[in-house]
Amino acid sequence: MLEEITVEEKLLRFENVTYRYEEDGEEALKGVSFSVQKGEFVVILGHNGSGKSTIAKLSNSIYLPTEGNVYVNGMNTQDEENEMQCRKTVGVVFQNPDNQIVASIVEEDVAFGPENLCVEQSQLRARVDEALKSVGMYEYRMHETHKLSGGQKQRVAIAGILAMRPQCIVLDEPTAMLDPKGRREVMNTVRRLNKDENITVLFITHFMEEAATADRVMVVDDGKIILDGTPAEVFKEVELLQKVGLDVPEVARLTAMLRKNGCDLGDILTEDAFVEAFIRKMEG
């Protein structure tokens, strides 16, 4: 009984998942196991081709595992009757903002998901407005999608998923094609959704700075998870990270080098925390 409850708490669970794109091709994922708790903000890091993007498409039954199982809220994604329920529970936002917007007008695009779910017409409007307000794009509801900036398009894509009222959002490198401003917009939106609306987030990226404020960071290399822990724990592994082609965020490098030189400020990953700790050090 006890065990059943803990299983249910896990919104997303990968169990020994192996995935091959072609029947006798290379394994993109090699026996990966992990789970995501309700309300968590998990970042998956890895270089291009590490297999991290495959995880996104496996998490809502767009791909089905070659071996092993993926569970969404305890439902196996391999069971066909679970397909729609899985996609409703776990929404996926993709990398290229241009290639995931279906409609020409912002609010029509956001309505696409709930329309497919046959949400009653009387509730559609409320869902669309709410989702757009959540990502700060409500004023743009009548704008043409192709005229938006990259960051705005990506926020519309997030709203399109939100309008389906998912419990978890998986974002597959949503910032890779954006400029710094767009990256900040998307990051802030996702953080807010996790904090204020308690939406579980699985954020896939190769930008290290984006991992600093996560609850948990997983590092994927060559189809396997090689690190899994809090950002502080993960970023201590400077050499291992560099070996798999990743950088350590500047702030973490700065504190590490200061520590080596006899100035220990503690575990610091964000600029705010650094400024605060350093001033405290100077004053005390």
Binding site: P249, L254, M257, E271, F274, V275, I279
Partner: peptide, 29 residues
């Protein structure tokens, strides 16, 4: 701008005698 530059600017704003012209970790250290 690099994170270390932002940190330097903010420390300067807090009244510390910091030169905001840093752009690499070793410089900042």
């Amino acid at each position: 701008v690099p994170a270390v530059t932002r940190i330097a600017v903010r420390l300067k704003e807090k009244g510390l005698p910091v030169d905001p012209c840093v752009y690499s970790v070793p410089q900042a250290v």
